[in-house]
Design a protein around this nucleic acid. Structure first.
Lengths: 191, 191
DNA sequence: CGCGACGTTGATTTGCCTCAACGATTGTGG
DNA sequence: CCACAATCGTTGAGGCAAATCAACGTCGCG
């Protein structure tokens, strides 16, 4: 299963056989059941998680106990709280599996050693982060320039299979409105 | 002036004298007048810009010709469009100076060579990107969980000097509401 | 000086939320 | 394997935060 991750890394940098073996040694592959928590609010994030199979979400809550979905991660995405991971500060986020998952786990306390052994990984994660940052900026762009209705149309044409895969109330939260409103959009009751 | 950048890099990785000299060779330091464009919509972004002195913004426009401020960069921040820079695709953003600026310019076509010469820079930019990503995620968190009024209070207590430094209509745009609304908040006419 | 950019204020409109009530579906313990 | 609860989605009525539109004051600059 680690080969899925190796393939992903090789999209950005080259790895020889010795390095692949090292990776397999440092990255733990685990199966996790549905609705398990990889991180909870207040904890220090301990690892970066690569989704080999399944789907996760990151979310936070407000005083009023409303959940706000921050981002989703499906196959071939990394998910973590970089702020908490790097500064070892308590996180404001939850990270939770939405399906039974197979994950590649890179523990923070093994990370420096692994990067020293395979220096190309610095570049790989730089590329991963560039992509994630561009995605976050796109997200902000759409929040600022489109109505809820437009964001739903845009998202569901871009990722039709994803809309099937996750509960609607999480999609609504991710897009920045209420489940009731999403329901009305789908029923064609909005403009 | 390049010493400002060297100091910033040394917060994350170490550089010997030879490497500092190399940096000075690869990073061009330029003075740019107020309201100059470093990038325009439709262009491919050619460089990553480090703000040594001054202030820049990145923004985009919608069909209706309304500007939306995406982010600001002041001293010790890098600003670019990573999506456009790395994939060499046309950008959706403008990047513009708001004050007379001194900038460190890392041209994309020199970047690979520089990274090969000073491999620690891969790690440095990984750290810079982690910080930028955490900031973008915080931004999304506040957009989703706070009202406009709350975002203004939060921002102006966190960065009081910054509120003085930039036009109000840009701050309003950055915070996700209209200049009229900001004016009413400041006049105490909102709740 | 005069024009354009910027900020202010008030009246009106609207996108979306809140609340509440009710089907449908899922899942779990007896 | 069924019964019942909990979770999830739908629908409608009413309300509010913030947008839009329009008009006017002010400042800086060519």
């Amino acid at each position: 299963m680690i080969s899925v991750l190796v393939d992903h890394i090789r999209r950005y940098v080259s790895l020889d056989e010795r390095e692949v073996a090292l990776l397999a040694e440092y990255i733990e592959v685990v199966d996790v059941k549905k609705k398990a928590f990889l991180l909870k609010e207040g904890e220090v994030c301990k690892a970066n998680y690569f989704v080999i199979k399944g789907c996760c979400r990151s979310y936070f809550t407000t005083e009023k106990d409303t959940e706000h979905v921050h981002l989703f991660a499906i196959e071939n995405w990394w998910i973590t709280d970089y702020g908490s991971l790097e500064r070892k500060t308590p996180s404001m986020y939850y990270i939770q599996t939405l399906e039974p998952c197979t994950l590649g786990v890179l523990n923070r306390d093994k990370q420096d050693e692994l990067f020293a052994a395979i220096p190309q990984l610095e570049r790989y994660f730089r590329c991963v982060l560039e992509t994630a940052l561009a995605a976050a900026h796109m997200r902000i762009k759409y929040i600022y320039s489109q109505t809820g209705h437009e964001r739903y149309n845009h998202f569901s044409t871009l990722f039709p299979e994803f809309v099937q895969r996750i509960p609607q109330y999480m999609l609504a939260s991710y897009l920045g409105f209420t489940p009731e409103f999403l329901s009305k959009i789908r029923a064609g009751k909005i403009s």
